[in-house]
Simulated scan of single mutants.
Amino acid sequence: MKVFSLFLLCSFMAWFISNLSETYESRSYFVLNYRNLPDSLLLGDNSSKQIEAKLRTSGFQFLYYKIFKGRMDIDVSQVAYQNGKYVLGQEALRRQMDQQLSQNVSLLELDLTALEVDLYQVETKKIPVQPKMNLQLEQNFILEGKVEVKPDSIEVKGPKNEIDTIESIATAPLQLTNVKSDFTKEINLIFPKGLGNTIFSTSRATVTGKVSKFSERVFEVPIQVINIPDGYQVMTFPDSVTLLCKASIERLKELSVTDFEVVADYGQLIGSESRTLFLELTQSPQKVYDVKLGENAVNFVLEQQ
């Protein structure tokens, strides 16, 4: 019985292989992959997912298609706009499929005369990214400059009526406490709901910030009086004002009195009997955390030259 069974199995295999090597005509399904979409169009959800075709090929090839469903790339750039629809004609469709079938496979006919592709017009615009974060610095530490977001804007592609509703894209909430060193965090972007046909160029952003320890330094800055009437001079009491500057230690070492300018405008007192001039800080250096005047006003005497 074992010998008989072995010969029976071998005979069946020989018969099976012999039949598979024959040429047949039958129908097979191919999964469609849409490629080369123009920038102005997007693929909708109602596009056909597969196509049926009648083929002539060997039984081995049909067996392969039964086990591993065939795939066809459809070049969407060749579609034509007809009667409000995007259509790929049968001739163009056959040509694309013939180019992808192996030499031992003949395409006999398709189950449709034209392939309708669900496409819709889209527009593209850049939307700014807004970081949504709560930053709490350690005492005596400051943030140098602003928090940077990369990318600071993303590209949005979709129907005009959808993307026109988007003014900005917010990041997921980020809480940073007791920060005393530079930081870099990657966070998700939060997209508005109800935009099923809109595509965003990225879903994440990186926020970075430079943090340094700050100190304080006091400067004695002379007061400059402007708009003095001709033939007169103004004497202020005092003739200088203390100024408190907060910045990083390295930055404070670089500063001098000439980096600041404090002005008192006599022209604001025309028609007034006031003996007080208000002070204004008109010049201060960059990359400092805070600058405060020790006094906002000074007394003065107007003398004729």
Rank of each mutant, 00 (worst) to 15 (best):
G194T: 06
G158F: 04
V241P: 00
L63M: 08
L88A: 06
G209C: 02
L55R: 00
E250W: 04
K213Q: 14
L255A: 03
T171G: 06
S215F: 08
R204P: 04
L43K: 01
G44K: 05
A80M: 11
V122S: 00
A53H: 02
F60Q: 03
G70W: 05
N19A: 12
D259F: 01
D182F: 07
P238L: 04
R71Q: 15
S256E: 12
D75G: 07
K126D: 13
E162P: 02
C10H: 05
R56K: 13
V262S: 00
P159D: 01
V207F: 03
V225C: 10
L195A: 05
N296L: 14
Q233P: 04
S256L: 06
F183Q: 03
S284Q: 13
V263T: 08
F62T: 00
I228T: 11
N104T: 14
V211P: 00
S5V: 13
L244C: 10
I67S: 09
F300Y: 10
L8V: 07
Y120C: 02
P222Q: 07
E162Y: 09
T124W: 01
R275A: 13
F7E: 07
G84C: 01
Q90S: 12
D45M: 13
C245G: 03
L43A: 03
F200I: 09
N83P: 03
V3E: 15
I74H: 01
F300L: 06
T177F: 12
L20F: 08
M235F: 13
V117I: 15
Q103A: 15
Q130Y: 10
L112Y: 10
Y289S: 12
E91R: 13
L20K: 00
E25C: 08
L42I: 06
V218G: 09
V147K: 02
L174P: 02
P229Q: 05
L9H: 03
K2I: 11
Q61Y: 09
Q130M: 13
V31G: 08
S77D: 11
R275F: 12
Q286E: 15
I154T: 02
I199R: 11
G196M: 08
L174I: 14
T236F: 03
T57N: 01
V79Q: 04
D259A: 05
E123L: 09
F237T: 12
Y86I: 07
T242S: 14
E148L: 15
F237M: 11
I142L: 13
F4P: 03
Y64W: 11
E303A: 14
G158H: 01
L9C: 14
Y289T: 09
P192R: 07
Q175W: 09
L143V: 02
T113E: 15
V149I: 11
G145Q: 06
E273A: 12
A14Q: 09
T242A: 10
V76T: 11
K210N: 11
N161S: 13
R95A: 13
C10P: 05
I154L: 09
A247Q: 01
Y81F: 14
D290Q: 14
L42P: 00
L195G: 00
S256M: 07
N188F: 11
M72S: 10
Q96S: 07
S28C: 10
I169P: 00
P128I: 09
F183M: 02
